[in-house]
Amino acid sequence: MLFDALLGLLLLGLAWLLLSCRDLFKAIVLFVAFGLLMAIVWVRLDAPDVALAEVAIGAGLTGALLMSALAKLPVDNPPGRYSNEKTHWLLPLTLALMLLLVASGLGYALWSLPVIAPGLSGEVAANLEQSGVSNPVTAVLLNFRGYDTLLEIVVLLLALLGVWSLNSLDATPATAEKPANLVLDTLMRLLVPLLILVAAYLLWAGANSPGGAFQAGAVLAAAGVLLLLAGWRLPTALAGLPLRLALVAGPVAFITLAALTLLNARLLELPVEHAGMLILLLETFAMFSIGVTLAALFLGQRPQERGGSA
């Protein structure tokens, strides 16, 4: 309990500091630390699956993404310079009071909630045998609420399309990265195979213990981010059709399965006897697509294709 109280206070303090400090770089470092503490909170709240996802995204991708975005901002605009000199002191005060009112209302609502509320846990446990896997979180994601996962992968794809179309407006060449030095190169050579191995492990373990397609995909993406940071670029021969195929493999696998289940029974209702195998297959495709999409989101611009039509 003391641990929880300290952790909660630290989280609140970090949130306040990262949102109010003047230096943007400091804010980013504090945000990464915030994500790290969130991972410990998920562990305290019995949610190791969420902790895995938070670590894979928070430690592997978010910090790197924020830092390269900060690096792209023009230098003549000093990061962190405030420009709200005109703001009257009354506005922050009013806002703070209003938000305090809202927060205390929400807090009171939480306080008066019943202490025991089983939610859907009973139904998940009752139907777990039919799902084909023994990790309930994977069962929910890939079987009971499969359509959520399908739409979520499509959202990732849409975000990537947005990023690509923003960049196609101006034809600035990709920022040339300095060649990696020996230490960085060795680190990559050791870490990237290990990351791929761990991604495969998480995918496989996801059937009956914490892990699954999202965590594994994020780990794959982290391997891609490391490669990109070391100066590696996708060969132009792979940047056209092969990349697109990798991006849509997950959604296409999902939609195909959805169509097949529509013929038989209802949307994405997996047949009980094949459910375990189908989930593993779906997860493999989903992991691959999620990994490639997240890494492409980090790269931030369309890779150079052969023929230079990018």
Binding site: G63, L195, L202, A222, V225, L226
Partner: peptide, 20 residues
């Protein structure tokens, strides 16, 4: 496993800082 993932990814943010 969470700790393992942490250890694996510990370098990524720092590398991004140095390189970008």
């Amino acid at each position: 496993d969470v700790a393992l993932l942490f250890a694996l990814l510990a370098a990524v943010t720092a590398v991004a800082f140095v390189r970008r």
